[in-house]
Design a protein around this nucleic acid. Sequence first.
DNA 1: AGCACGCCGACT
DNA 2: GTCGGCGTGCTC
Length: 840
Amino acid sequence: MPAPPAAPLAQVVPLTPVDGVYTYRVPPEMDAEAVAGARVVVPFGRRTLTGVVVERFGDDDLDPETAPKLKPLYDVLDARPAVPADLLALTKWVADYTLCTWGEALKAALPSGTGVESRRVVHGLAPPDAWDEPRGRKVLRALQERNGAGLPVAQVAGVLGRKTVPQNLLRRLEAAGAVRLDDEVQEARARAKTARHLRLATPPAGGNSRTVRGARQTALLEHLAGVGEGGAVQAEAFAATGATSSTVKSLEARGLVEAFDAEVERRADGLDGPAPEAAPPVDLHPAQEAATDAIAGAIRAGRGGTFLLHGVTGSGKTEVYLRALRAALDKGKTAIVLVPEIALTPQTVRRFRAPFGDAVAVLHSRMSPGERLDAWTRIRDGRYPIVIGPRSAVFAPLDNLGVIVVDEEHEASYKQFDPAPRYHARDVAVMRAHRAGAVCVLGSATPSLESVANANAGKYTRLEMPDRVPVRGPDGTTHAPAPLPPVRVIDLGREKQVRRLKGALSHDLRLAIEARLGRGEQTILLQNRRGYAPVVTCEDCGWTPTCTDCAVSLTVHRDRYGKLSDQLRCHYCGLTERLQPACPECGERDLRLLGQGTQRVEEEIAEVFPEARVLRMDLDTTSRKGAHRKILDRFGRGDADILLGTQMVAKGLDFPRVTLVGVVDADTGMLLPDFRASERTFQLLAQVAGRAGRHELQGEVLLQTRNPDHAAIRFALAHDFHGFAHVEMAERLALGYPPYGRLVGVEVKGPEQRSTEALAERWGVALGQEAQKVAGVEVLGPAPALVGRVKKWWRYHLLVKAPRTLPPSVLAAVVRAVRDRVGAPGGHRVNLDVDPVGLY
DNA sequence: AGCACGCCGACT
DNA sequence: GTCGGCGTGCTC
């Protein structure tokens, strides 16, 4: 009999949007495993679900109120805690900061699809005609059609075409024995995978390897001798040696080889595979040297700190990251590298795997749940000291963290919106590093104004790399880089008057492209709008097609069959319909297509330069798995002259023969009613401009705009980040926007306009009342969202604004008070977004 | 977020 | 009277 546990109780946080920590009894046999950080299966109300143990304690200080309600843990899912202690604390911080539950934050830190959940399910036991009431027959018929598979209770409402579950009817059916109600437990979808392995028998029983006959048997034995006790996956051993199952059978019979099942790691193809060969070390440029010294010095000294690494495109930030990782590894510490999802390309991964090889684990969204689980488990077990991935990788279960790198820290994709937690991975990275005594490196050519402000305030150490560094060509020789490319503005307004511009490409841009075609150089064209034309309108009556479910006009998409098969698509809900050749209102056949999408620019290029080979890269051409990579590979091989696409062509690409970058319409997004519109435009222009002339060939950038005097354009022209930041900061200060103010966005949604608007009003009033209690807090709105209706749901926005000096917890308390008081009654939804990044 | 309960008006 | 909608409260 084992001694009863000293701490027989466990505090558990269920992985749901339910607030609070719940106490369970720990059965003695689970005592050793149900430690803080372990995932456990618990009964919760009528359901069974997965939670995380956050604390163990004894029953001496149990309050008598909860004591009688205690239930036991059903199961422990982890032999080793899934959530290390520092991540327990970090997720709690994330929950408090972003106004979600601890359970939601923990869920973000765990691989998806590995928990257990239950739901109420009805099983039919009697045929429909055994019941004489129509509604009961209908339910029984539906159950019969499912062949005993069972129907979730929540779906019974739908079967009868009503909104609520007919509890009464179900109870009567159950009492009569016509149905059975069950709590059906859904096991984890993703599990560890095992495969048959082979190894040499120890000690070799019976036979003796000298008696072995045949090349295959000998080859297999040699192979297995080389892999040691861990054995080899049978299928791989067969492939390597030509052995077959009969080879194994005869060796097994003689006791020379034994087979066993063991876990294998599923690996994502493309981004993974064997490590590339390490490139010889490069000499650091003085600015890189200084940055490396500062960062690596802090890592070696173990003193932590956040660094803002501001380096122009091509200044060699990645090399600095690699040195930082090296410093961490040399100290026996681990590291995380965050990259924007779109930049997580094979090219990027190769860069990190070259020097560190098999020490690098990659996490990314295109991995299957199984692959992700395998990578995650091995990271937790200490197999990989370096993790590279998108925002969720900030929660990678690494111990002993030395450094977190956030590449392109200004990228909006670091902010998660749905589902909660609405966290910013950069901010979580800074906090996680800080708590771990680790170093955080925020790198960008165009840092966010938030980070600039933190550097100005002395919270971050600023490191500047203002020059491009020498590059190594494919042949191994290094050469001086071209300077940052000159940027030229083409005023489309003037162009229209003077040269009667018809399409999307101005005379000068055409000339520039033509010159590249003539010299065999490459061009990148940015048109940040997909489809053919954003709007259609009837020449005669002004009719414009709009989405039935969303408050937006439909975009025209044209496929390779041309105009006759034109489609209308909603970019918010995906609705697709045929564009009819005549106006449905007045019958006019002259429909005008307004504006330019990537498809239309592609068509124009084909007309003007029929010989040019064009690759289009946008959401529509990259939705298939691997398509993104294929396009970039082709362009990189020189199999195309022009890469045309949306913002995805602006990020982190490095092609030596690109000497021209053209921005077809720099104004896209610039005039949106969002205080960050100008910052985003400047960042996009600076990033895309950085794609030109990165190697020895001098590059050139052409920006087409109707607003040549706009600050984003003017400073992008001069590659002047500091100038832009200065002007934009003044603007933010005047308006009290970040980084000089704190914001919480409130999004009120509902299926019906009046009630949604009314609820938004109630939130406005309640927020106003709460805001009065705290100096400096202001409420803006409610106002209809920019897109006032999406997928049939109406949307209203409010914005709570507070001075930077107000502690985030105080502002959070204001909003939380209103959530408790007003909430989201009657089928509405209210989303709270702390530090919003999107449109408000 | 589920899930169940209990209160209301609208029909047979 | 029941049924269906909806608001409310609870989950160790």
